[in-house]
Design a protein around this nucleic acid. Structure first.
Length: 648
RNA sequence: GCCGACGUAGCUCAAUGGUAGAGCGGCUGACUUGUAAUCAGCAGGUUGCGGGUUCAAUUCCCAUCGUCGGCUCCA
């Protein structure tokens, strides 16, 4: 144990095991680690001081709880990646001296750094940068924190031409800002960081991309390099393997391989053509959707795809949504290809008056809408220009709002669960600065949304002020194979359209009252949902939605008639069945059906033909042996009825 | 839309300025098949589309459409 200077001010440091040591005020976290053990000193990377994460060079000035984090600790991952970002920036500065740095944080999957560079980085540049990074790691430079007065920092950065960095400091409220130095490199940074560059063991630069400074398209376009880093090579390799695995699950790849859908240059970007199998999948989902809506008191309506511009003047879309709309000119009149279903549903509602006794009224429609999306954002099925919303509009009294919202959230969660989605995130967006509707209504609706989430015990994030101008909303975001989030179900309260269209009901007092409207989708859109579904199941759909539920395979020529009979029987029972009587070996046919992820292969040869039976092979379980056709049909029907993800 | 990469047979990918090739798939034939690929032959391309440079362009340049990775926005 180190000698403690007896006349220093003593502070008590409590360790996780409850023991405490006394050290002089000003002792660093790293020095405390060294007092505890030599091993800890060599492995320590960071310290948690009273819950806050700090560098080893952080000075302890008062009594505190301290946890020393060792290399590999999950809680040090952010710092590790942030350090990797600095090392990358240092490498870039060495190789491209004229380049200025913007911002370089750690992110959920790694880190990035934005640079202002003439031209952009090439893949060869990335290799060179990575090589230089390894050199910097080998140099094992210590990262040293320095506090600098704000104004001095701004002057220093401005003098160095680091305008982006200077701007960042301008926006910081503190009197002092911190810099981290490693060798010849220094960077404005809040920290914390690993103690030395040598502790960076496993990293990889992944790709380059353009990114606007501060995400603002009016500001300069910077070059962003993405990379990732892990405590160990094994973890990095595992992550890279996961990326490869994700690429295999990519719905665009599977969509082609499984013959589900396509897009065509001739037709235009972002427009989806469902092939027979994709359509079968979608139809299965839709059928379930319709049944569940009927059960919950929704009434299906059908509205036109185009409507005169005047309708969109009333709704206001012609103003604020115009950039996203497609227009048609017919007989010198302007028509709009509908970007939303709401005005149509309102017209249905408005076609006669409604009593409070009828409320709530729930109209639903699988309504296909078209929205202009900028070319750069299109993405397979997940972001398209023509899509079918699984839409519904609920008209209710203000008093019914809470119950309706609760019902919708319940419904949305039920739908996600039915399709095996367990991972999603919920966002509640509250009133923005510019909005319509009374304080009372906003409060009531926001409370209803919040209350419904809490009733369900659902964790959610609040996006303050991120609501739409017409009302608060809940968004549920689904993850794709790569973990990117896509908005699926959404529930939006609307105070605007009821005003614009004068949507009302007759109350018990015989007077007209303003109805409240809820827009909601419980899947999102069919396109996006199907896309997520493909990735969710990696193409191996549960039997109840599988495009082909069973494929009948004949062994030889003399079994063709029997195979046809079996297939016809299964078809008649309502199953989705395909027949393969090609002149091929059974192994070949099985392989093909297997690659297409058909849940059940029904194999018929001499034995089956004699016994009037079928031999069943499951895509997962393999050979299930011979059984009467009736029995097989029963198994499949059972799985369909229970919407089971498990297979026999 | 912006930044960058990419676009060759249905699919996956070769061909770095000199007449475009493979595997899989497709078609035809032979084999008559028992639980993840039988063999042989044949067909298939105005190299996304349009310009330009060149004696000559898949290859170099420009423009355009599309795809991919991001930025921004949204179901």
């Amino acid at each position: 144990m180190e000698q403690i200077d007896s006349d220093c001010r003593k502070v008590k440091v409590t360790l996780p095991d409850g023991s405490a040591i006394e050290v002089c005020a000003g002792t660093t976290v790293g020095e405390v680690a060294a007092m505890i053990s030599r091993r800890l000193a060599s492995r320590a990377v960071l310290g948690i001081v009273d819950g806050g994460i700090h560098d080893l060079q952080h000075k302890i000035e008062s009594d505190c709880d301290l946890t020393i984090l060792e290399e590999g600790d999950e809680r040090s991952l952010d710092a590790l990646r942030h350090t990797a970002a600095h090392v990358m920036a240092q490498a870039v500065r060495r190789l491209f001296p004229g380049v200025h740095m913007a911002i370089g944080p750690s992110i959920a999957t790694g880190f990035y750094y934005d640079f202002d560079k003439e031209g952009s980085f090439t893949p060869e540049d990335l290799e060179a940068i990575e090589k230089e990074m390894r050199k910097i790691v080998a140099e094992n430079l210590p990262l040293v924190r320095e506090e600098v007065p704000r104004e001095e920092a701004i002057a220093k950065l401005a003098a160095a031409g680091e305008v982006f960095k200077a701007e960042l400091v301008e926006d910081l409220p503190d009197d002092y800002v911190s810099f981290y130095h490693q060798g010849e490199f220094s960077d404005l940074c809040r920290g914390p960081h690993l103690p030395r560059t040598g502790m960076l063991k496993a990293f990889k630069l992944l790709n380059v991309a353009g990114a606007y400074w501060r995400g603002d398209e009016k500001r300069p376009m910077l070059s962003r390099i993405y990379g990732t880093a892990f405590p160990t090579k094994a973890e990095l390799d595992e992550y890279l393997k996961m990326l490869e695995e994700a690429a295999r699950r990519d719905h665009r790849k599977l969509g082609r391989e499984l013959d589900l859908f396509s897009v065509h240059d001739e037709a235009g970007a972002g427009l989806i053509f469902y092939h027979e199998k994709g359509a079968a999948l979608r139809t299965a989902v839709e059928q379930f959707w319709r049944e569940e809506h009927a059960k919950r008191g929704y009434k299906y309506v059908i509205t036109p795809h185009i409507a005169e511009s005047t309708l969109w003047d009333i709704s206001g879309h012609n103003g604020y949504y115009r950039d996203n709309m497609y227009f048609l000119n017919i007989d010198e009149k302007e028509y709009v290809l509908k970007p939303m279903n709401c005005p149509g549903h309102i017209l249905v509602y408005q076609s006669r008056s409604h009593s409070y006794r009828e409320m709530p009224i729930r109209y639903c429609e699988l309504g296909t809408v078209y929205r202009y999306e900028r070319s750069g954002v299109l993405h397979g099925l997940l972001r398209v220009r023509g899509f079918t919303q699984d839409d519904a509009h609920l008209f209710c009294t203000p008093e019914q709002l809470h119950e309706e919202i609760t019902g919708v959230i319940d419904f949305a969660i039920f739908m996600l669960k039915s399709f095996g989605f367990e991972e999603y995130e919920i966002f509640l967006s509250t009133r923005p600065e510019k909005s319509v509707g009374s304080d009372e209504n906003w409060e009531r609706a926001t409370a209803a949304l919040k209350g419904a989430l809490e009733d369900h015990g659902l964790a959610y994030h609040v996006d303050p002020g991120e609501g739409v101008f017409y009302g608060p909303k809940i968004d549920i975001k689904l993850k794709d194979a790569l973990g990117r989030m896509w908005q699926g179900p959404t529930i939006q309260v609307d105070f605007n359209l009821p005003e614009r269209f004068d949507v009302n009901y007759i109350g018990s007092d015989g007077e007209k009252h303003r109805a409240v409207m809820i827009h909601r989708v419980v899947l999102g859109s069919m396109e996006r949902f199907i896309g997520c579904l493909i990735e969710q199941y990696a193409g191996a759909f549960p039997v109840w939605i599988a495009p082909v539920q069973a494929q009948v395979l004949s062994i030889g020529e003399r079994h063709v008639d029997y195979a046809r009979k079996v297939a016809a029987d299964l078809l008649a029972r309502g199953f989705r069945v395909e027949l393969d009587v090609r002149d091929e070996k059974i192994g070949y046919k099985i392989r093909e059906a297997q690659l297409e992820q058909v849940p059940y292969m029904v194999i018929v040869g001499d034995k089956e033909q004699e016994q009037g039976a079928v031999s069943v092979r499951a895509r997962r379980g393999g050979d299930m042996g011979s059984m009467p056709l009736e029995q097989f049909a029963g198994i499949v029907q059972g799985l369909i009825d229970s919407r089971s993800c498990e297979e026999v």
